[in-house]
Design a protein around this nucleic acid. Structure first.
Lengths: 195, 195
DNA sequence: GCCTTGATTCTAGCAGTGCTAGCGAATCTG
DNA sequence: CAGATTCGCTAGCACTGCTAGAATCAAGGC
């Protein structure tokens, strides 16, 4: 029994090693540098061990993405706590979100850009994802108008943030005016919708 | 001289052939199916001819993207013309944009998601790109508030549309509520910002 | 203590990718 | 008709994700 548990512990340890190695490599040189061979060399094992832990490269990216979601949720939470008022909190959360995306582009891509086999908008989604969304929701809900569904409004605001970040990062929007665009987005969401 | 021109004409013809073949293959089976070998077989030439026309696969995708921009601009324009009023036009253009993205996902990805070496937010950007942006601008400008920069507001609205489309297509937002989210986005942009 | 049994990790290889060097043939020029 | 030049092809490089089967190591029974 004890031997069994030691082995399981070692396995779990190695799995964490794989995930952090993948993440660090991706953050340092981008996901295109994360090849199974490079990753195997990094953890000082041979290639096939990766496949005894994960179904494939996508699954490794998914594991990294889940980690990232937990961090994003935490950063949005602390930003929200430090701010005052409905508008202040939404602004703070929006800034925390985009700051995270710009500081950790590779992590962000694994979470929200790359095709990755994670359940998202369902109850089966990993707790970390739901946590991150809940954090956004908590900031958006107070500024929702009477008849608006807060969930849908949050999704829409999220889309705005995501669009800003991705278009900017791919060079399709100039970096310089980011703060002003973010301000515009948040400003229009905290206004009363004229329907 | 005539021989020269005939050759140039044939070359240009073949170049168009490459671009349309790439586009059709991408739309039918996705960009991951568009390999240089497959593409070469499709145009009934060998692989290396592709490289006598384009610097690489990315350049081919860029050419497809430019085509797509022209079409998107045209579709937004006709939608805008058919609509009435400031709000009606913005709604129509937003719907045209997202409808285009959902109907031609591969084309959309080449234009706005995949990393592609096209100048975007500069005067050197291809005319087709500027045209598409101008079409959006024309719809957004009338609803801009007093002190708002219409260009920045357009970029922000664009980001919202782009976020909605990409998050939905990657399964991160449920497809069902798309119309309602789009309505929320447009609604908040046509409202007065409370700054 | 030795040998068998079982799991675990590695070597080697497959089928594919984007891209390119250099040969062969077809074409135009003098 | 011979020579020069352009053109497209064959073949191959270095890489990718992934896997079958050999080899190695540790545990258990005698």
């Amino acid at each position: 029994m004890s031997i069994q548990t030691r082995r399981e512990r070692e396995r779990a340890e190695r799995e964490r090693l794989i995930v952090t190695a993948a993440r660090e490599l991706a953050e340092a040189e981008g996901w295109e540098a994360v090849t199974t061979r490079r990753l195997a060399a990094e953890i000082e094992y041979s290639q096939p061990v990766l496949y005894s832990h994960f179904k494939g490269k996508e699954a490794i990216m998914a594991a990294v993405a889940v980690q990232g979601c937990a961090e994003l949720a935490a950063e949005m939470r602390t930003a929200s706590r430090a701010a005052k008022g409905k508008r202040g909190r939404l602004t703070a959360v929006g800034e925390a979100y985009t700051a995270f995306a710009r500081r950790r582009p590779a992590l962000y891509d694994a979470m929200f850009t790359h095709r990755v086999d994670l359940p998202f908008a369902t109850p089966e989604a990993p707790a970390e994802l739901q946590e991150a969304f809940a954090e956004l929701l908590a900031a958006v809900e107070p500024i929702a108008a009477e008849g608006d569904d807060p969930g849908l409004l949050t999704e829409t605001y999220w889309a705005g943030l995501h669009g800003l970040v991705t278009l900017m990062r791919s060079g399709r929007l100039p970096e310089g005016a980011h703060e002003r665009r973010l301000e515009l987005l948040t400003g229009h969401f905290t206004a009363e919708a004229s329907r």
